[in-house]
Design a protein around this nucleic acid. Structure first.
Lengths: 220, 220
DNA sequence: CATTCGATGTTGTCGGTGTCAACATTGATG
DNA sequence: CATCAATGTTGACACCGACAACATCGAATG
């Protein structure tokens, strides 16, 4: 995360006591993520975030309307990163079923590896209605799943039925597993897996088996 | 919710200006749930909860060590109510598969009908490690699912395999659907269902189909 | 009944927080 | 160089979580 990229200005003053920060906005987002990871949501304070970014308590208001706006930025970063990671992993695999498995795995793994982002994305922290808004239209996680389902059905490898409904089944499965892992309701060690990675793979495989077309495509 | 029951004392003083409340503890839990439902988590304030219960701002500390302890009480109430509702619905159905479907439906429906409880139970609101602690050992939601799976396997109706792993699949599915509904990530209307109830039934049925033993393709 | 005492509710206080307004500093632009 | 919009600082206010000291009730005891 924290892919900054544009470092065009900021001109490297001796690192000491420069009035302007350079990229405070991203620094605040990073600090918020780190703070959530280290101390939990209860400790997420705009003032502490500012402190960690090396700036006074009102500086964040030059970049975010309020605390919730900062969280929206964290969520947006999460949506982009998650979809990107899913796409990258899926590119390295061929076949609709394998791609579906890979997509599901990537979903769970993103959650496990970036709990603060995942929690902010799907948690109950927003009062304003907050739209997922992926980086580009049709490139969000759910759209990726829907396209996998379509391709699988077209190839006769997946159960027939409403695409959206099947995609929702897949989304629920991986989202549930991710949520339970992130919220520490389940411990991979207690489920015969030495890591969240193998658990994600096992469960996602079973999901796709369940969605697979009955042998011979006869459908009973 | 809010099953008070023991109203032995409190002696009905003219409803006005009585110093002692009678059952403030439960009143505080109820007020917290209502406040979360109406205003969201950001508005959940110990002082506002006290206000709604008609007491001053420090009164809650006679019943709860701190704000988190109040949330633990909400979660505990949720765990008890959820398991109770699942058990009650399952009693009215026979057959392992039908019971499994019913259990899954009940899980999702509880979440949809009691969002504050569900969110507190599984949300990121606790800093202290907080054990689910069902009303009685082996009576929590997951244990109910595990027993359904066992019975289904014993009857040859469910896929063979590690019970815990299969139960985790089922739990992930219903938990994911419940979470997505509660967090308003999906709208039942957009998925061909006019209500969360029908969506829960459709998805839970598909889950059990996927877990069913692959012997008769009769589509059950 | 009068006294006592533990449980429960109140008042006052403290440091910390979200948010805003007024002010200060900077770098870019003319 | 002068100006100005962007960005960071200072100071203030109301609210919150938590604690301590005090007040009030009801039940048990004599």
């Amino acid at each position: 995360m924290a892919t900054r990229g544009k470092r065009t200005q900021a001109t490297e003053r001796t690192e000491k006591s420069r009035y302007h920060h350079g990229d405070l906005r991203q620094a605040l987002v990073d600090a918020a993520v780190a703070l959530i990871a280290e101390e939990g949501f209860a400790a997420l304070t705009l003032r502490e975030v500012a402190r960690r970014a090396g700036v006074t308590h009102a500086a964040p208001y030059r970049h975010f309307a309020d605390k919730e706006a900062l969280l929206e930025a964290v969520a947006a970063e999460g949506y982009r990163a998650m979809a990107r990671e899913m796409r990258q992993r899926m590119e390295r695999v061929t076949g609709p079923l394998e791609q579906l498995i890979t997509a599901g795995e990537a979903y769970v793994l993103f959650a496990v590896r970036h709990p603060p982002h995942f929690r902010v994305m799907f948690g109950p922290h927003f009062t304003r209605p907050h739209e997922p808004v992926a980086s580009e239209a049709g490139e969000d996680a759910f759209s990726l799943l829907v396209r996998c389902i379509e391709a699988g059905q077209a190839a006769g490898l997946l159960r027939a039925g409403d695409r959206l409904s099947l995609a929702l089944t897949a989304w629920s499965q991986v989202h549930g597993l991710a949520s339970l892992l992130v919220d520490r309701q389940i411990d991979p060690a207690e489920h015969g897996s030495e890591s969240a990675e193998t658990l994600a793979r096992t469960q996602t495989r079973r999901l796709v088996e369940g969605l697979a077309a009955p042998l011979g495509q006869g459908r009973g």
